[in-house]
């Protein structure tokens, strides 16, 4: 069997490659989106450097007295 310019097997391989590319790109988008959401929902953490946000921390026992 000779190798034609466009064979059935090329179509199958292309579908695998395109499918895998889409899966990988989707994964990157998901991880990025989840990161954004998690950082924004970080509650007592600052989004930019993960430092505790002093303004929302519970008061120290000494300070509350």
């Amino acid at each position: 069997m000779t190798l034609n310019a466009e064979h059935e097997i090329h179509r199958r391989r292309r579908s695998r490659n395109v499918g895998l590319a889409l899966v990988l790109v989707s994964f990157v988008v998901l991880v990025f989106g989840l990161t954004v959401v998690k950082v924004k929902q970080g509650d007592m953490m600052e989004g930019f450097d993960h430092q505790p946000r002093v303004s929302v921390l519970p008061p120290e026992p000494e300070a509350s007295r």
């Binding site: 069997m1 190798l3 064979h7 090329h10 199958r12 695998r16």
Partner: peptide
């Protein structure tokens, strides 16, 4: 090298 299928008679899988 010349055949489009390394396993004659067994079609390659596609993404589907």
């Amino acid at each position: 090298m010349t055949d489009t299928n390394a396993y004659p008679g067994v079609p390659e899988a596609e993404f589907g």
